[in-house]
């Protein structure tokens, strides 16, 4: 951002343009890979950016912005379905059943279980509402097994169970860039028995020949089923977790974009931060780079990221042992002015922070207030309107402009923390002629 005042930020045109995956990878600034003073740091790259080990997957053609935003809508709906079932249980109030607004037919959770038996004697796993992965995600590279193989996986604060595709791929595997993990070649690998307490930590489980089975299914129909096992997980050349419990997928299908699997960072029992609680104290941090050609980081341990002053922290709410990181969004500022949105608009719906969702979803009343404040501030500058981009309905054509000035946007949270959104996060651009306000509305106020 070329300039930042309290009410506006100036964007250079090249900052608006998404970097094509064919451009070169920015060298990361002052990132030390490996151990930090009291933890571990891993580089994060955008799955479809030039730094990704998967960059030339799909024959080099990343998904279109429509596809990314479509998949993102799937994910948001899947999360909301999941939350509404747990919230209903907690609140006891049945939620209205609305047909899903997404254009694509959703597999209903009552669909026959995708977990058809892995072998004739295996139990079938019931389908769970799961979580949609979406395709706009960030990946990290982990080591698994002894000797450790390297696997590029999607990391996801909206999921708990880590899994990778495994040899011999008994049923079906999707194409992945790297070799499949082969448990038979790892001297530290072992299956978890059905009787082990760890097996009951799973949200969806089964049993086959005395071995614990896991199953995860996502809102877009993707799923992974296999043996729940333990092995050594290596996060950097200095740091490993022995006996880490993960899914060894023998039946995996879906939109995983040739990643080897997924690293679960949610609040549930099977997630990495909860499994490694004694080692990292339940603390981790991530930073997404401004551009998809940049490199961010995923840190584990109390030294994660520079010390965050209490002024910049917000309470983590709703401690029901389930996956999501609930926070209390309390207001929005545009151009430095606080929008007049009744607090109940935010408290009715509740808010989570989710690394796997691309676009922030707001209650409709909050979104319309944000949109009109943003649009009126921009109108004063005479920028040309552009057609909507999938669910993003407030778009502009910045063709021919070397730089543009847009109003600042800040999200305010309980405890006074304010997220003054970076310029790269206010505008989501498919191209310089279609650059949109990077927020969207939920369907209903209590979504």
């Amino acid at each position: 951002a070329a300039g930042r005042g309290h009410d506006h930020v100036v964007l250079r045109a090249e900052d608006v343009l998404p970097s094509p995956s064919s451009s070169s990878c920015d060298t990361p600034r002052e990132h030390k890979h490996g151990a930090t003073s009291s933890g571990t740091r891993m580089p994060i790259v955008h799955r479809h950016g030039p730094c990704s080990p998967l960059a030339d997957a799909h024959g080099g053609k990343p998904p279109s912005h429509e596809e990314i935003l479509d998949a993102d809508q799937n994910r948001a709906e899947s999360i909301q379905r999941r939350v509404s079932t747990t919230t209903t249980a907690a609140r006891g109030k049945p939620k209205r059943n609305r047909p899903s607004p997404s254009r694509r037919q959703q597999p209903s959770s009552s669909a026959p279980a995708p977990g058809a038996s892995l072998s004739s004697s295996a139990a079938s796993l019931p389908a769970s509402s799961g979580r949609a992965l979406g395709t706009g995600n960030y990946v990290v590279t982990i080591g698994l097994g002894t000797p450790a193989g390297r696997y590029t996986v999607v990391f996801d604060t909206g999921s708990d169970t880590t899994w990778v595709q495994c040899e011999p791929c008994v049923v079906v595997c999707y194409e992945q860039q790297e070799k499949l993990f082969d448990p038979a070649r790892s001297s530290t690998d072992a299956n978890i028995s059905c009787a082990a307490p760890a097996c009951s930590d799973l949200y969806t489980k089964g049993c086959s020949g005395g071995h614990c089975l896991y199953g995860v299914q996502y809102g877009d129909g993707s799923y992974s089923i296999g043996f729940f096992a333990m092995d050594t997980l290596t996060l950097s050349s200095y740091d490993a977790i022995k006996g880490f419990r993960f899914g060894c997928g023998e039946r995996n299908e879906g939109l995983f974009g040739e990643a080897a699997g997924l690293l679960g960072l949610g609040r549930g029992k099977t997630s990495l931060p909860v499994q490694a609680y004694d080692k990292y104290g339940g603390v981790f941090a991530h930073c997404f780079p401004a551009r998809s050609s940049g490199t961010g980081y995923l840190d584990f341990g109390p030294g994660s990221s520079p010390a965050v002053s209490t002024k910049l922290t917000t309470p983590m709410l709703v401690d029901n042992g389930l996956t999501f990181y609930y926070v209390g969004l309390t207001g929005i500022r545009v151009g430095g002015k606080l929008l007049s949105i009744p607090p109940s608009v935010f408290t009715t719906a509740g808010t989570i922070v989710d690394s796997g969702t691309v676009i922030t979803r707001l209650p409709p009343a909050a979104y319309s207030s944000l949109r009109s404040a943003f649009a009126s501030a921009i109108a004063a500058r005479g920028y040309k309107k552009a057609p909507a981009l999938s669910l993003l309905d407030t778009c502009y054509d910045f063709t021919g402009m070397s730089q543009v000035a847009i109003p600042t946007v800040s999200l305010l949270f309980q405890g006074g923390a304010s997220l003054d959104v970076d310029a790269s996060g206010i505008i989501y651009a498919a191209s310089v002629s279609q650059a949109c306000l990077g927020f969207a509305a939920n369907e209903e106020d209590d979504d």
């Binding site: 990132h31 999360i79 909301q80 995600n137 960030y138 609040r267 931060p273 609680y277 104290g281 339940g282 603390v283 981790f284 941090a285 930073c287 997404f288 780079p289 401004a290 940049g294 961010g296 980081y297 994660s304 990221s305 520079p306 010390a307 965050v308 910049l312 922290t313 917000t314 309470p315 983590m316 401690d319 990181y325 609930y326 926070v327 719906a349 989570i352 922070v353 989710d354 690394s355 796997g356 969702t357 691309v358 676009i359 922030t360 979803r361 707001l362 209650p363 909050a366 999200l411 923390a417 997220l419 003054d420 959104v421 970076d422 790269s424 996060g425 989501y428 927020f439 939920n442 979504d447």
Partner: peptide, 30 residues
Amino acid sequence: VGIVGNTQLKTFGVVYDIGKKVVGFSPGAC
């Protein structure tokens, strides 16, 4: 629920402390 997505989190160090039950945002972290 509302969902804060990764586009709006760019360049912030987002710290999750499950033990202390807080989430922190440190600007300009990457």
